Simulated scan of single mutants.
Amino acid sequence: MLTTMMNAKDLKMSHSQFESHFIHDVRACLRAADTLPEWIVEDLASISEQIPADVFRFLSEVKVNAKRADNLILSVREFCRLEGEAEPCERLDLQTVVSSVVAAFSPPEGFSITTELQPQVCNVPAGALQHVIVALIDNACRHNTNKTGSVHLTNIQTDGALFICDDGEGIPEAYCESVFAPFTTLKPRDVVEGSGFGLTIARRRVENWGGSLCIIPNAAYRGATLSVTF
């Protein structure tokens, strides 16, 4: 007979604890799926000429899909944690924040990030605003299939909004709202890598501070223009 009995309430697990344990264990499995193909390739190195090329291609695809699944789990976790979350707001100068983010952002080779900004005070969470700006710039670069491209950010003649404009292919009008839905990608992941949560999370952050994020018509740019309000 046990001399010490655990109280039933001690066996209960909070939602956040369950989420943490679940994600930790699943990601451990995915790390194995990412690492094991490398070990197999190393073991086959001495007889690689006897192994069909498809075997190595399949092993590479296992690694790619393990990383995709891991990124998806992290995106879902971030999205769920934003549900109803209210981060503390502070008075920020939009021009200063955008300029700082752009200076720290490393665009792909052949891409440029430009700004045309004026001082503007907004009352929003600093971290959330920075995350949104980075996510929208990154999204514009990744979905531009050209070898060169540009992203332009401005709050001049925008009625107080921040516009993020690009010169990519744009987003068809029929998808201008659905692209914000979870798991949505306009192109196969083999063409443009992504979890389908980038714009979803960005919109949730903006809505949490009381603003809006949407795609608007803009004749000045052939690509997409996203509007962030405060």
Rank of each mutant, 00 (worst) to 15 (best):
N155D: 10
K187N: 11
E78M: 03
V98S: 05
M1Q: 13
G196T: 14
S14H: 10
S60H: 10
R31A: 14
W209K: 03
V206G: 11
A181E: 03
V191T: 13
N7W: 08
A45H: 15
V41A: 04
L72T: 04
S20Y: 01
D70F: 07
E38R: 12
E49I: 09
Q157D: 15
T185N: 15
G84Y: 02
D138F: 08
S16M: 15
F197W: 15
C165H: 11
R204V: 13
P119I: 06
F183Q: 00
N123W: 11
A103Q: 06
D54L: 15
F105L: 04
I47L: 12
I51D: 04
E173H: 13
H143Q: 11
T4S: 00
L44N: 04
I215K: 04
E61N: 11
F56C: 08
F163D: 05
V64F: 01
H21I: 01
L94Y: 05
A69M: 05
I215V: 13
I216Q: 00
H131W: 00
I156G: 02
E42N: 08
I51M: 05
R203I: 00
T145M: 10
N123Y: 14
R189D: 14
N144T: 00
V102K: 08
E78T: 12
S60R: 14
R31N: 15
